[in-house]
């Protein structure tokens, strides 16, 4: 049995029907543990007070915003190379989820930034990069919506995703060149000196895992919807052709 078997729509539908309750349940548990632990059972930061706790929404969603684009990139490559429809549809399904994570990251960042930096928005490199990432998501989603033929849309958006990745990456470094900002460095790192003390880090890991599984749940759900809407369209075109 090869992994490509799951690229078959029927097989995918069967497997996801079975997997969805488990995955969504796991997401709820992880998020519940992470968020409740993080919000109610961690001390207040000596400098930031209770505002530090927004980290449990801000960091995971920012991480998923980038990861979702990576997933779309992989899906696009698989579609272009192996022509598996499910992978193109999964990439399509992931885009709005990724955009939502980007927006959550930006909004929670603004809410955090207001008391910390004294401003809702600063043209800090990270903030700017995320804003630009959001624009890339918008263009990708708009292109999917605009092209009528499903396979052509999959081709075009896949090419856009690949080229867009290169330019998003370039933008990230161009923005760093343009302004060295006031954003703090990485909150979590394995090798370097810990930026976040363990008290905060443990629940944060739960939240990150929870957001990841939440992302998987949403993408599975949306991919199923895409496959079904494609089936409906196929039925309708068959009906119009007088076959049904």
């Amino acid at each position: 049995m090869s992994i490509w078997e799951y690229a078959n729509p029927k097989k995918f539908m069967q497997t996801s029907t079975w997997a969805l309750p488990w995955v969504s349940g796991l997401a709820v548990v992880l998020l519940a543990v992470g968020l409740i632990w993080g919000f109610f059972f961690t001390p207040e930061d000596y400098k930031q007070g209770s505002t530090v706790k927004i980290i449990y929404l801000h960091v995971p969603s920012a991480m998923m915003a980038v990861s979702a684009w990576f997933m779309m990139l992989v899906g696009s490559l698989i579609w272009l190379i192996r022509r598996h429809h499910v992978s193109a549809l999964a990439a399509k399904a992931a885009a709005p989820v990724g955009l939502t994570f980007t927006v959550i990251g930006l909004v929670t960042g603004a809410i955090w930034g207001q008391p910390m930096w004294g401003t809702w928005w600063a043209w800090d490199p990270r903030l700017t990069s995320f804003l630009i990432l959001g624009l890339f998501y918008l263009g990708y989603i708009a292109l999917w919506a605009a092209v009528e033929d499903a396979d052509t849309a999959a081709d075009l958006t896949s090419v856009l995703c690949i080229v867009g990745s290169v330019f998003a990456f370039l933008s990230r470094y161009a923005v760093l060149f343009w302004n060295q900002g006031l954003h703090q460095g990485a909150s979590l790192s394995v090798d370097a000196e810990q930026h976040v003390s363990n008290v905060y880090a443990f629940p944060l890991w739960f939240c990150i895992a929870g957001f990841l599984v939440l992302f998987v749940t949403l993408v599975l759900l949306r991919t199923r919807t895409e496959i079904r809407s494609r089936r409906i369209r196929a039925l309708m075109s068959r009906e119009r052709a007088g076959v049904l």
Partner: peptide
């Protein structure tokens, strides 16, 4: 009509 997008989705 056994081919085309119809069957790709099914």
């Amino acid at each position: 009509n056994r081919k085309g997008a119809f069957d790709e989705a099914f």
